[in-house]
Design a protein around this nucleic acid. Structure first.
Lengths: 245, 245, 245, 245
DNA sequence: AATGAATGAGTATTCATTCAT
DNA sequence: AATGAATGAATACTCATTCAT
């Protein structure tokens, strides 16, 4: 797992037990867990997974550590073997879940062969596949919900996730402008035309969707629609028709 | 305070003590409203305001009723005079804050004289003025954060707020299409091109913005940009230039 | 209640909730305590009494706050209404129990009419009556037992109790020497010939005596014997007998 | 390690796991004690030493077994190999530390050639050397502090330590009386004129002294002073002067 | 109607003890 | 014999809720 470079700058005053940051989200297929099984290696990851799910679902204050432990298949005491406090666990969950894929993505997008329209489509849909659709998306919902209770973590999240994301989007839009594919744009705001749908989808997925009684949103279709609208606008093109007519 | 029409449908299983939002001790015959009477009337409102702010900031579980009472300038005991429980208070906060302006807005937009492009701009900016920029926007952040802890409230919120909002937006887009101002659109998804930015702004305002160290978003500029992008797209118009050239 | 002058110097880093220091050891005759009786005034004193007894008996770590509360006839929660933590309670117990009677005693002994032999007898026996035989003696046992767990408190206790006591005894011995009643003495050490028996009695009373199966010590008799031995020594006086013979 | 004769009488109701103080796994036939064997033998002793220090410093409840194990250089689990419980460890610490030197001392004092004044001086100073100044003195502080939590141990201690000590002192004083060196004394109380200073010194050493900021006591000087006062009293001797005059 | 003292169920955390290795 | 991961009962402390005044 790649820890974000600045992770340690966060931890000056309230340090997070780093021993906890083991393989995140390792889809260990549920082996029959014998009682008092010894597997120090696996524990933190399992706890982090369980904690992520519960924190996302119920929030920090609404989650009981005992529940986290139970879901990870261990006892309350074991949790405190790996995380010195509930808050420490919380921080570890957030920090652990933030691998910065941005270097990787940057390279990938930098090398993208097609035109920027295609790149934008690709960026959005691959984001969905790799983040939006995964458990990792919960972190965003969590941060949005708990930011004001953990301002330190919030600014860490902004620095390590929001900022790089924003820069990546901006680069794509800039590419479009540079290549004459996109018209001149107010980039500072235009980036959010990409980011807002992502945030919206993640929030929706983790809040309304699970109790949705009627309205369903198909993320893939929505993102396609959004990219389409974003690219071509909703306005009819009277000039174009006129000309053709 | 305007209660949404469907408020009572919510109350089947987990009833909200309605005495809380209604005048308490209403048996008192209409006497000349002395100053102290005035205060009596004001109590629940002050509590609801305080509760809204705190719930938005700290979440349901993270907020202590004592804090709510203190902020409203009353004692803890008094709070329970108006709301039978913390949960009841929470529900009242949500329900109370949802006046359905939608009938009003519907009428307003129905009578809108200008073209749909103008209408869209107007709708977005007036939404910001009347909701986004106000304390009411907190409710959305609250619902997004707490939906899974209060699924009943969540579906109430969807029914009373999201749904009408969605329909309103849809109507506007439909109007554009009907009048040939907008090109044919996948309306089911396109509505979210308007809604996502709103949700995003409200979430941002109540989560990241308060602890933002760097990135600031100017909502008005962003919404303008978003509407612009939405209307005209980001793509350059080779045809258009061709024609002109 | 008179708080020792230097009490506040102790409280710089870990402050003791001073609201707690109400009438100490008020022998409130057990009135039938109605449930949920309201008597804020009496509470802290009752709690301090109960806490003193239990801390003396079981030590700090060995005492459960719930037990303290129960003995004071209140619930666990109520205790925390008056003392912010177990440690705070402990400190309050110690500080509260240390009224400095030394000014009063100083005056009393200063004005003592008889010879110093009488004064010494009087001092010891009145100490027993006013301190040794009372619940207050427990504090000494407590401090001796817990000094190393609460070094701050320990030096407070030395400053406020041991030191003044030492000075008082020294003054008495000095008086004896000044008046030619006592022979020249190594005062720095001689004071402990008075202090050690007191400490010993208090320790004994609160540790061995309660589980004594055989040996019993009669404090009054012991103190009388100790004063006698101290005054006249145990050695036979050959010179004296010789002369008479 | 010498076990006191009456040690087993203690074990009626709350038995002390004697395997702890005996060679563990003694079924091993007497093989040449390799180095590792040596260590094995040493384990319980190291644990007992560590435990003694910590119990004395922090009390029974305030001491964590993990700390004891760590100080002894073994793991928590190992401790429980030798002692079946924390309480068992505690009892072993006390019992182990009480070698009864009294038979030896009895003989030594019985054979003492000099006068009783000398004997008394010798007894006190050799007690300080052999007990007071050593780690063993901690046991007394421990017992004084914990007696009421372990009444059984307390009466064991009284029987095995206090009682023999008292008898030894009494014998010395009796010797002085018998030989006409001491005047007639109330022996039952007079013994405590010797014991109290010892107890006082041990308590002081293990409680106040470690956090003493000002007052220091020189035990040897104090004991000398105490013996001097005890022998000759503090009173001036008018008769003597008269005679001389 | 308003208070705030009192309550006790609930929760985070500790730590003696167990046990598979 | 030794380890140290795992346990869960115990305990300090919190906070929604009650109720006498």
């Amino acid at each position: 797992m790649t820890l974000p470079v600045a992770a340690d700058t966060l931890l000056t005053s309230q340090s997070v037990n780093m021993s906890a940051t083991a393989t995140p989200h390792s889809q260990t297929p549920a082996e029959p867990p014998a009682k008092r099984e010894r597997r120090k290696e696996a524990r933190p990851g399992e706890l982090l997974e369980a904690a992520l799910d519960l924190f996302v679902e119920k929030g920090f204050a609404g989650t009981r550590v005992e529940e986290v432990a139970a879901r990870a298949g261990v006892s309350k005491g074991t949790l405190f073997l790996y995380f010195s406090s509930k808050e420490d666990l919380f921080k570890a969950v957030v920090i652990d879940s933030i691998g910065n894929r941005f270097v990787e993505w940057n390279a990938e997008f930098e090398a993208f062969p097609g035109n920027t329209t295609e790149l934008l489509k690709y960026a959005m849909s691959s984001w969905w596949e790799r983040v939006g659709a995964t458990r990792a998306s919960g972190i965003t919902k969590l941060m949005m919900s708990e930011a004001r209770n953990f301002p330190e973590l919030a600014s860490f999240y902004q620095r390590e996730v929001m900022e790089p994301g924003r820069r990546l989007i901006r680069k794509i839009l800039q590419r479009g402008m540079d290549r004459g594919e996109f018209r001149p744009l107010d980039l500072d705001n235009a980036v959010y035309s990409c980011i807002a749908p992502m945030i919206f989808l993640m929030m929706w997925k983790h809040s309304m969707a699970p109790c949705s009684l009627g309205v369903e949103i198909d993320p893939v279709a929505y993102l396609a629609s959004q990219v389409d609208v974003m690219l071509h606008g909703v306005s009819a093109r009277p000039e174009a028709s006129k000309i053709k007519g």
